[in-house]
Design a protein around this nucleic acid. Structure first.
Lengths: 154, 154
DNA sequence: TTTTCATGTAACTTGTATAGTTACATGATT
DNA sequence: AATCATGTAACTATACAAGTTACATGAAAA
């Protein structure tokens, strides 16, 4: 695993849940993601706490979306998985004594903050509904003759 | 070590080299950076290959800048250390079969590319000279009475 | 009410990248 | 010839996401 792919992963899972009739189990979602059910539960726990999804135990249990796709932005999801670091590079020392390093940090920090702010702003403007619509465009384009079912196979 | 701090580190080293009279040894630079001389050699090897610094062995040897500070941008330095990943997050799969994941990737890829392009553009507009000038501003502000020497101690 | 199913979670292992260290060969200066 | 400094390989330490194992908890079905 090279870099953090939790955002990508959880978005994938949420869209699959949206397509799924009734509660989707961790195992079903894990199969679609080619990973382990525990990874799914772990990645979804933050979203449950914030009320974006619900989970039920026992027979007929599993995961369901608790909100309309148009009411969830990528920013919401990003926050729900715990605001992982967006940038792979950082300053050696956050509060250096060395004035040379302070000058370096200041220059980089400006750029870093701007990049992070830009990403978060963009995330805030993208809803799951948009991704969902994009998926359906891709689906009808790829399979013009088929009904939009059996999504997990594609 | 949490995240990649090579850019921050090498900039720090280069500015120290600029302040240093004559060749600076890896050991001197390592002391200023509070790290190991081998780390300095490793981090500077890419810059040597691209002609930004020169190194000499033996007595009186060490590292010197091979170009004016105004002729080196942060982008140059970033490229010289091997274009490390800028973003900490990425897509789970680069070329997924799943159309849902393709839709997710497309949305994220746009944002990621824009953020990376923005960072690189900013790096391209910042020269070492600017950082150097900023350092001197900080120095005279912190020590109004002192000549600008003994930089390594600050 | 007992079995089955599914989540909740802790604990551990794995993979990968930077950072740091050790050791030693190479070459330049004194 | 002795000394100094780089060049580089090989190893260890550290951090963290991802994956796995194991088992407790609770809900529905038989």
């Amino acid at each position: 695993m090279k870099r953090d792919s939790r955002l990508s992963g959880v978005l994938h899972v949420l869209l699959h849940m949206a397509e799924h009739e009734g509660p989707a189990t961790s195992e079903i979602l894990a199969r679609a993601m080619q990973t382990n059910p525990v990874v799914i539960r772990r990645i979804l726990s933050g979203l449950r706490e914030r009320g974006f999804v619900r989970s039920e135990k026992g027979h007929g249990g599993g995961w369901v979306l608790a909100r309309d796709l148009s009411g969830i932005t990528l920013r919401d999801v990003y926050d729900a998985i715990g605001n992982p670091a967006l940038l792979a590079i950082s300053n050696r020392t956050e509060t250096p004594d060395c004035l040379v390093e302070q000058a370096v940090n200041a220059a980089l920090a400006d750029s870093f903050q701007e990049a992070e702010a830009m990403l978060l702003a963009r995330f805030g403007n993208i809803t799951l509904k948009m991704l969902h619509d994009d998926f359906h465009t891709r689906f009808t384009s790829a399979f013009p003759n088929r009904e939009k079912d059996h999504i997990h196979e594609h």
